[in-house]
Simulated scan of single mutants.
Amino acid sequence: MELRKKVCVLEDDDDIREIISFLLESEHYEVFSYPTVKDFTNGVTTITPDIFILDIMLPDGNGIDVCKGIKSNDSYAAIPVIMMSANYTENDVQNNCKPEDFIRKPFDIGDFVDRVALQLRH
């Protein structure tokens, strides 16, 4: 049996986090979701995800800083990162950390799923 791809989601909005988890689980991914940077930092040490999906504006930090941390960590640097934001532009994000993709909120559900799948194939 093929191991399911592990998706690590950092999103503080409960509704968006639930929607993302539901969408990805319906695509047979194993989803680990966290509402805060602290929870994410504690939780990610126990898994090796295949992709990170990070919101930017968080109650206890910033997804761009989390992205920089991932990209500078040898254990995680090769894992794709998708950033999401309603308030930042792709340029804002690309100038600060180098995610593989950027999704503007609100997002199209089909497009979201396709873009996650695309990153997981690379």
Rank of each mutant, 00 (worst) to 15 (best):
A117E: 10
F52N: 06
D65K: 13
C67S: 12
I20W: 01
S26N: 15
D13M: 02
N87S: 11
V44N: 03
N73W: 06
G63Y: 11
L120R: 03
I109K: 11
G61R: 04
E18H: 05
D12P: 01
A117K: 15
K105F: 09
T41Q: 13
S72F: 00
I53M: 13
F102H: 13
T36K: 01
E90I: 11
F107N: 03
P49V: 10
R104T: 13
A117C: 11
T89K: 10
S75R: 12
Y88K: 13
P80K: 07
S33D: 15
Y76T: 13
K98V: 14
L58D: 02
L58H: 02
D92C: 05
V116T: 09
N96I: 00
I79Q: 08
L54S: 04
V9Q: 03
I16A: 00
E90Y: 03
S85W: 09
E25T: 13
L24A: 09
A86D: 03
P106V: 04
I70M: 05
K38C: 02
F22H: 09
I103T: 07
E90A: 13
M83F: 02
D39Y: 09
L118A: 13
I109A: 01
T46R: 15
I82Y: 05
D114P: 00
T48N: 12
V81N: 07
I19Q: 07
V81Q: 07
N87V: 06
L58Y: 04
G110T: 14
K105R: 15
V44I: 15
S33C: 11
T48S: 13
D55M: 03
I51M: 07
S75M: 11
N95A: 10
D13N: 14
P106E: 08
E27Q: 13
A117G: 10
F22I: 12
L3E: 12
C97K: 02
M57P: 00
D108L: 02
Y88R: 11
L118C: 08
K6H: 06
D13L: 07
I51H: 06
Q94G: 00
N91W: 11
G63P: 08
T89M: 06
N73Y: 05
P99D: 03
P35M: 00
I79L: 04
L24I: 08
E90Q: 14
Q119A: 15
E30Y: 07
K6E: 13
F32G: 00
Q119S: 09
T89D: 01
E11G: 08
N42A: 15
G69W: 04
V31E: 04
L23W: 10
Y34C: 06
F112R: 05
R104P: 01
N62C: 12
D50Y: 11
P99M: 06
I47Q: 09
R104H: 12
Y29A: 02
I53P: 05
I20G: 02
Y76K: 08
K105A: 04
I47F: 12
C97I: 11
P106H: 10
D92S: 12
G110L: 14
G43F: 04
A77Y: 09
I47A: 12
Y88G: 03
L118I: 09
Y34A: 02
D74M: 09
D60P: 05
I56G: 00
V81I: 15
L23K: 04
S26G: 09
L120I: 11
M83I: 15
T41P: 00
N91C: 00
D92Q: 08
M84R: 07
T48F: 10
N62T: 01
F102R: 10
